[in-house]
């Protein structure tokens, strides 16, 4: 109890609160509110694109503090599908951070994408959807959706497209991105294995003359293997990551869902 309510005698004692006994803090000009509307539900997500596909993956653990809420709470969703099965969707979205905000954001984007199709008679492009998602997030700039989002799909040329966001809507198109609790563990791995950072062609010179290895889009099989490796490793080192790996793979034939168990400890 001490760690949670700590040095706060008012809260730690009991709910029979007395105004006269409350500690008076004259220095505090700004009054902080009692209720903190956010929490962190842990977990990690990851997106990688290839020439003609896009993969977004996330672990399925949901946590609060040291507790596991559930071992299966998906973080990657289909957007623009026909019904709750998500069939017919052409965009994938992952959200990690505060799960309630994530769900709200997903549902809002989904409704917007549906309205777009109803009003314009065609599916929204990934590029337009990415821009729209940024404005949704920015629209709550002063009470943000506490999530890191990754949006994926295929662009107008059929190439894999991936957009990553911060909680208030800054976004950019990338080849790969890791987000969430284990982002700092996964991202350097991705830099090295997807974008070949710090890889040089042997024998091309000394020091600065060394030629960097050129990054090329990876085949789907390799990317799936990278994703699995990233998550098994993150599971080993981060307590909030584990239980299961959910992967959505978007190709011109639609969206495929894959699931791999992860360690549950």
């Amino acid at each position: 109890m001490d760690s949670l309510l700590g040095s706060n005698p008012t809260l730690a004692s009991n709910p029979a609160y007395s105004f006269s006994k409350a500690p008076y803090n004259s220095a505090a000009d700004n009054k902080e509110h009692a209720f903190y509307p956010y929490t962190d539900n842990g977990g990690s997500t990851l997106g990688i694109t290839g020439e003609d596909f896009c993969i977004i993956a996330g672990d399925t653990r949901s946590t609060s503090g040291y507790s596991i809420n559930t071992r299966y709470s998906p973080k990657v969703f289909r957007i623009g599908g026909d019904d709750e099965t998500g069939e017919g969707a052409h965009i994938i979205l992952s959200v990690v951070g505060f799960a309630a905000d994530g769900t709200a954001l997903k549902e809002r984007l989904n409704a917007i994408v549906k309205m777009y199709k109803y009003q314009h008679g065609k599916k929204i492009s990934v590029k337009a959807c990415a821009q729209r998602l940024a404005t949704i997030l920015y629209g709550k700039r002063f009470f943000p959706y506490y999530v890191t989002a990754i949006l994926g799909g295929l662009d107008e040329d059929g190439k894999g497209a991936l957009y990553s966001y911060d909680p208030v809507g800054s976004y950019e198109r990338e080849q790969c991105r890791a987000a969430g609790a284990a982002a700092s563990l996964i991202m350097p791995f991705l830099d090295n294995q997807v974008n070949y950072k710090n890889q040089y062609l042997p024998g091309t010179g000394e020091g600065h003359d060394l030629e960097p290895r050129q990054a090329l889009p990876l085949p789907r099989h390799d990317v799936e293997q990278l994703v699995r490796d990233a998550f098994t490793s993150a599971t080993e080192r981060h307590i909030e990551v584990g239980d299961g790996l959910q992967m959505l793979v978007m190709t011109k034939n639609g969206i495929e869902e894959l699931y791999h168990p992860l360690k549950r400890d």
């Binding site: 760690s3 706060n8 902080e32």
Partner: peptide, 11 residues
């Protein structure tokens, strides 16, 4: 509290 420090109850 273990993450954000002691809570200010003056509110």
């Amino acid at each position: 509290d273990d993450v954000y420090g002691p809570y200010d109850a003056s509110y």
